[in-house]
Design a protein around this nucleic acid. Structure first.
Lengths: 349, 349
DNA sequence: CTGAAAGCGCTTACAG
DNA sequence: CTGAAAGCGCTTACAG
């Protein structure tokens, strides 16, 4: 392989690849883009040439021609900063590949939502991605729908009609976590519920109840504490659980922020995690690997979901431009149970 | 203002703007790009037309022509996930504007660094951005320099020679925090130092000592605890400080992760934050606003630093391609002291 | 200070 | 299955 020339303005183009392979640029393009109808021999020659020259397509050229020139808005209210960061990484990765542009708008109250919405519309946005919890706001989705703007909801528990969505299977993810706890030998397992306004919270709670029942385990009424997905609400909930006369040996928290709070509270009353009490989270945001011990949790591929949301959105925009109806596609991504140091067998086992 | 046509593949181009303003596309382009030598009247007409049509430049077209087609690598070892996320957002925002491409490589040990470096070189990378702590690795910068690859170091305390860098003024940021604590009335202020291998750690510590001395405050030897920037090291350090016979009334932690740990430890031994003890951080990563109480900290504009790093890099690459010498520019960004709920006057004042 | 021409790298649409 | 031509939107380089 010849060393890549440095200090040279021009880089390897598809014409170089075509020339080296002895084909037309069109054939080279087809191979690069994996079109099916190319002869095997030519395909191999082009692939070899591309590899030898270390060819990388110029994305600007590509997107100029395919004119994927969409403007995508991201409208968010008050998610955790960490979650939004991860999502935005995926969104930006994908839009930079496709040449789409991104506008981010924050809205807190109902008035600021009106302002944000107007700004997006004035900017001539082609579609809006809604991270949680806005993805579940009937009002927001409706307003966008009336303006004929396609919407992709991220991580909603129950997508509104006609709205495309990207999510994980919260229910089965939570079941997997519960099975992990039961397999470790826990029988006294408590739940910290999430904000009832967030639709995935209910799914995660349902999984808790169903798995407990299936395993023949009892759920004392005071083993279920209400949380709001915030650290502070996690502190309150965990304190209530751990100060019970017969405290649980494991706490399944509906997200990482509350689990982090629970770990802190446990330490506060002299309990070691996981030796004395197991604490698990959900989402696998950065806090899960920041604190000590690191949290056993259900990994949600947030960046990948951001990428998927953009792809769905571009597809939706293309459909509308072509005069076709909306697809309302729902993509379900894979969760992963990540076992770290915050979970272990209950004491005395 | 006419409503933007929906369901129309083609969007507003610079030709539309030029036509409406009655000028050539070139003049329109010059106005959009703020070239100085354009007549005032034409300028105004073009600006008006652009606004009326809600024109947004097509970035693909622009970067194709200006061929800002650089390939930028981001090589990182083990920073906090939250910090890297924020940095990457800035990097991706800027590269998507300029049309540059990004390759991210992680390396842990010394062997994996060799692999990562090779991959970047094989990919024909034009420059490498080094987030902390790799920005301070003599070996890494040297190796890249030998391969004639420009480097931009992010958040290094003392940039290596010939390496461009983006950072904040860690010393004065830490001074500002210390003055805040002193102004609140604290006299017994402790420090949790950062990892001695990270160059900003020393600057933040120096600011502590200097400000204490300037204020005529004593620093008992055991008021300075060594940390490693990790949550776990923060727990150990905070425990040592708070169990002292005469504990401090304020703890200045060299980063947010350790401050979060200190808050947790304080709660653990029955101390309220900030009523009984003040705890402050540094960086303003997402954990600062996740935990409760939220941390008073020094905001480091990490995403903006990512954007700046890309701009510096593109400039550096342009210089080299033009055969000019490296600039080795050092950009210093603004920090902000963010007062939140974790700091207050000492008890009994 | 202003503009007509050309071309960045790629792929669509047409032709064979 | 393969290719010659054209053009996506923009700005550089040249001319006036």
């Amino acid at each position: 392989m010849p060393p890549r020339k440095r200090n040279t303005p021009r880089s390897v183009t598809i014409l170089d690849v075509a020339k080296r392979a002895g084909v037309s640029p069109m054939t080279a393009s087809r191979v690069i883009n994996k079109h099916p109808r190319v002869g095997a021999e030519l395909r191999d020659r082009v692939q070899a040439a591309a590899k030898e020259l270390n060819y990388r397509p110029n994305l600007a050229g590509r997107s100029l021609r395919t004119s994927n020139t969409a403007r995508i808005g991201v409208l968010y209210s008050n998610p955790s900063a960490a979650y939004l960061n991860q999502l935005m990484i995926g969104v930006l990765e994908e839009t930079s590949l496709s040449g789409a542009q991104v506008l981010v708008e924050k809205c807190s109250g109902i008035r600021s939502q009106r302002v944000a919405m107007k700004r997006l519309l004035d900017a001539g946005i082609d579609g809006v991605i809604l991270p949680p919890p806005l993805c579940d706001s009937r009002q927001t989705t409706q307003e966008l729908d009336e303006a004929d703007i396609p919407v992709v909801a991220v991580a909603t528990g129950q997508p509104a009609e006609g709205v495309a969505s990207v999510r994980i299977d919260d229910y089965h993810g939570a079941c997997a976590m519960m099975r992990h706890l039961i397999k470790l030998g826990h029988t006294r397992i408590a739940l910290i519920k999430g904000d009832p306004k967030h639709t995935p919270a209910a799914l995660r709670a349902q999984a808790y109840f169903d798995t407990m029942e299936k395993a023949g385990l009892e759920v004392p009424e005071n083993y279920v504490a209400q949380g709001l997905f915030t650290y502070r609400s996690g502190m309150t909930a965990a304190r209530a659980l751990l100060e019970l006369p017969t405290p649980p040996t494991a706490i399944f928290s509906s997200n990482d922020d509350m689990a982090a709070a629970a770990v802190s509270v446990a330490h506060g009353i002299g309990l070691h995690v996981p030796e004395d009490v197991t604490v698990t989270g959900f989402d696998d945001t950065p806090v899960a690997t920041t604190i000590w011990p690191m949290l056993t949790t259900v990994h949600q591929p947030v960046s990948a979901m951001g990428r998927a949301a953009v792809r769905l959105m571009l597809e939706e925009i293309r459909r509308r431009r072509a005069g076709r109806s909306k697809s309302g596609e729902h993509q379900v991504m894979k969760y992963t149970l990540v076992k770290r140091q915050s979970s272990a067998a209950p004491p005395g086992r």
